[in-house]
């Protein structure tokens, strides 16, 4: 499994997210300064656990909070379903962190984008993105997609679309270049064969479709 302890659909992890949220809410009530320190401590602890979960991977370019946020975004962008695991299972956060470690422009894109995301979430819900509820996180991404499609009047969201495109593109690439993503779409090639044949069922399928089109 990947490093997304706080956020996956795995039931044993949900309470952890609840703990964090309750903690965050309690600390918010206690005062902004205390909140920041305590939340940072919790996030740090969770990131440590994330490294353990990821087989010891320590982010080299992103800090722990950024890495957790990337992991949560990757989980939302390509979640697990019956066809395969998630982008986190496919190593998307590590992929992104690695490339950021080799490219300062890319790292800046992520640092700025993740800061924008936290700021936008704070404005809407008074917490960072990873602290927000599942519904609040999806609401933000829904807004970004709407803005991308020109269906939103919010100039505030439009500012985040560029970053969203980056992380979506790289998350999707990480997933479909992994063994689970390749299996998900059903690629059967990259083999050594003695002869090439197109299977009869594929030929019959196409013939039916051609007939249906009147070709």
């Amino acid at each position: 499994m990947g490093p997304d302890i706080v956020m996956t659909a795995g039931e044993n992890r949900i309470p952890r997210r609840e703990v964090l949220r309750q903690l965050a809410l309690a600390l918010t009530a206690a005062g902004a300064g205390a909140f920041n320190v305590e939340a940072a401590r919790v996030v740090h602890a969770l990131a440590g656990e994330a490294r353990a979960q990821a087989g010891g991977y320590s982010p080299v370019a992103l800090d722990a909070h950024q890495f957790l946020t990337v992991a949560r975004l990757a989980e939302l962008i390509v979640p697990a379903d019956e066809g395969g695991g998630s982008a986190v299972d496919a190593g998307a956060p590590e992929f992104i962190d690695l490339l950021c470690s080799q490219n300062s422009d890319l790292l800046r894109t992520y640092a700025d984008g993740l800061a924008w995301l936290d700021a936008a979430t704070r404005r809407a819900h008074d917490r960072t993105f990873v602290e927000a509820s599942d519904a609040q996180q999806r609401e933000l991404l829904d807004g970004l997609v709407a803005a991308e499609r020109g269906e939103s009047g919010s100039t505030d969201l439009r500012a985040g679309v560029g970053f969203f495109n980056w992380i979506r593109m790289m998350t999707v690439d990480a997933y479909y270049t992994s063994p689970i993503g390749i299996a998900d779409v059903g690629f059967r090639g990259n083999r050594t064969l003695g002869a090439y044949q197109t299977p009869r069922e594929a030929i019959e399928f196409v013939t039916r479709r051609a007939d249906g089109l009147g070709l």
């Binding site: 939302l76 962008i77 390509v78 979640p79 379903d81 066809g83 395969g84 991404l141 829904d142 997609v145 991308e148 979506r168 593109m169 999707v172 690439d173 479909y176 270049t177 993503g181 390749i182 998900d184 779409v185 059903g186 690629f187 059967r188 090639g189 990259n190």
Partner: peptide, 30 residues
């Protein structure tokens, strides 16, 4: 059915937005 690679499903992802919709779109498009 080419070997999936970097960029193979960028179009599917844009069309789908995010979430399981991306996976469903990619399976249709592939």
């Amino acid at each position: 059915y080419g070997m999936p690679g970097v960029g193979s499903f960028a179009g599917s992802a844009r069309r789908a937005g995010y979430g399981t919709a991306i996976k469903e779109q990619a399976r249709r498009d592939y």
